[in-house]
Nucleic acid binder design. Structure first.
Length: 188
DNA sequence: GGGGAGATTATCT
DNA sequence: GATAATCTCCCCG
């Protein structure tokens, strides 16, 4: 009987390594979710991070330690889901391949096309019904289920999307060839 | 299939 | 008062 990987140890590593290793991981909320297909890393030392200027009421959960969730409202409309690492670093979950609870996702999104259910940070938050009530919770306790990948998928890397600061850093990671990404990676 | 405008609100200057 | 880790719809081709 193999020992299950320790979740805190998984997230207590360099944030770009965690972002890459999250690809292929299983994540569900109340049995709704699938396989993480796209992530972005954020570190307090670069200005795109919400933790760049230190702790504030909004980003408090970024400092709870490895294995917690950071959920924030984006553009006053959408919710975005992050997994916290060490020292205020966090990984934004940008896309999930829907596998479980697809019916409920389709209802929440008002869409039938599986490809569009979770292909973006705001979309997947709506599909999984992620909200402020999940900010600061542990990823390895109900209503969540988290399981790291058993074998690493092929990875593509590129610059992060939708930001103006530190936009040159290649800190976006995706499963190569996945049909469920928020946007294609530029070849090269 | 691609580009641009608008929606909407918490947070910080 | 400006900004923001986004999404959808509309127009054009």
């Amino acid at each position: 009987m193999p020992t299950l990987p320790d979740t805190t140890a998984f997230f207590n590593r360099e944030v770009t390594a965690v972002a890459r290793d999250l690809l292929g991981a299983e994540f569900t909320l109340d049995g709704v979710g699938g396989i993480i297909a796209e992530t972005e890393a954020y570190h307090p030392t670069e200005p795109a991070s919400h933790a760049h200027r230190g702790p504030t009421p909004r980003n408090a959960s970024m400092f709870l330690g490895p294995g917690h969730l950071y959920v924030y409202r984006s553009y006053g409309i959408h919710w975005c889901l992050n997994f916290v690492c060490a020292d205020g670093a966090a990984v934004l979950i940008r896309a999930i391949e829907p596998l479980e609870g697809i019916e409920r996702m389709a209802e929440r999104r008002g869409l039938a096309n599986r490809r569009d259910l979770c292909s973006g940070p705001g979309k997947l938050a709506q599909a999984l019904a992620v909200g402020k009530q999940h900010d600061g919770l542990r990823i390895d306790a109900p209503p969540f289920r988290f399981r790291p990948p058993e074998s690493p998928p092929p990875v593509v890397i590129g610059p992060r999307i939708g930001i103006t600061k530190a936009a040159d850093l290649p800190w976006r990671f995706g499963i190569a060839g996945s049909a469920f990404l928020s946007k294609a990676f530029r070849p090269g």
